[in-house]
Amino acid sequence: MSAVVVPGSTPQWLLLDGPSAPEAAQRVHAQFADAQCFALFEGTELHGLREHGPLLVDLRQSPALASLCHLDPRAWPGLLLVSPKPAVQLLAHLRRMLTVTLGLHHKALLNYYNPHTASYFFDGCDSHELSCWLGPISLLRWFGGTWADRAIGSQGWQQLSNPGLSVAALEKEHGLSDRQQGQLQRCLLERHAWQWSLSTGRDYRRLWEDLQQGLALGFTERTVLDDWLWLRLQYPDARPMPGPEGGGSQRERLDRLRRRWQGRQG
């Protein structure tokens, strides 16, 4: 994956990230009524949410919208697609991408249409996996990056070309590799650090280090990890002992650490 400038194959489709920008979907219907649109969730197990889900928009009928996607990409978040295949084939593939399996017993929605998620997920694919996941898509482009990129103001245009290797078609509820799952987990953690940085004003890089330190200490439960981050804000220079903080539950270990730091402060 690489940051690129816009020139290249003209995108034929916009897969609009409606869940994160419902106002953009409303603008499509109001300002570009002639553009053919498909609700991605329609006919899937998420059919009931189709009006609030992603929207596949045919840009060939609306060059003005295609220009806006390039000029003001933050107002039209999502993926720009080039595909030589008919719309029905592209839609079927995009809908298969929605639901994935994690391990043997867990199923999840993959919001790959979100530019942040795309920046992690597709980066976790090798050339064979990418050929499978892109399928009928020859070129994929979006404006964004990781949450860390956003925190330091280095988002930009990203582009992926389909390697076109001979691979099996994407299965329904396709399984994710360990690397792909790891990338998505990192996406969640970096988003959490970004949200904390935004709400507290603490430098993102320092907050990410604090979060990583908390995980290394065994504070993996969401509420305990959040309390650890809050404790770190109060005692930025305190140094915990390496490794898990004694025995007991995560909450008990964090409480012992808090009491020790409070004692030293006094």
Rank of each mutant, 00 (worst) to 15 (best):
L65P: 07
R95F: 05
H29R: 15
H52Q: 15
E221V: 06
S67C: 14
L170H: 00
P19I: 13
H105N: 08
G8H: 03
Q31P: 06
C37I: 12
Q155V: 05
L211D: 01
G214S: 08
G53A: 13
I137A: 07
A108Q: 08
G144E: 03
Q212K: 12
H93E: 11
L14K: 13
L46S: 06
C187K: 00
G175V: 00
L14P: 09
G175S: 12
E129T: 00
R232Q: 02
S197F: 01
E245C: 14
V5L: 13
R95S: 07
K107M: 10
L49S: 05
F143G: 06
S161T: 04
E252A: 15
H105P: 01
T44G: 03
Q181D: 00
P84T: 14
E42D: 14
H116A: 07
R60D: 12
W13Q: 06
R186L: 14
R264Q: 14
M241T: 12
F32S: 02
F122D: 00
V88G: 03
A238V: 04
L59E: 08
Q158H: 06
W157S: 07
E221I: 04
H105V: 02
L130S: 01
R232G: 00
G43C: 12
L257P: 08
L49A: 07
T146C: 07
E173T: 04
S2P: 05
L165T: 11
S177H: 11
L231P: 08
G182H: 07
P115D: 08
H192P: 01
L40F: 11
W147R: 01
A92R: 11
R256A: 15
L16I: 13
E173H: 10
L49H: 07
G53F: 04
A168D: 13
L40Q: 09
R74G: 03
M241W: 06
G247F: 12
V167N: 05
G153K: 05
D178L: 13
A39E: 10
C125H: 00
V57K: 09
R205C: 05
D226V: 05
A33I: 08
R239K: 14
A108F: 10
R186T: 15
L140G: 01
H106E: 08
L81R: 08
R179Q: 12
S138E: 07
Q31V: 05
R150Q: 06
H105W: 03
R206A: 15
G48T: 13
S161M: 06
S2F: 09
W261V: 15
H105Y: 04
Y204Q: 02
V224G: 02
G48W: 15
L71P: 02
V167H: 08
G48S: 15
G135E: 01
H106C: 03
R141C: 05
P240R: 09
T99V: 09
L229C: 14
L160I: 09
Q250H: 11
R206N: 11
W147A: 03
W194M: 01
L160E: 01
N111V: 04
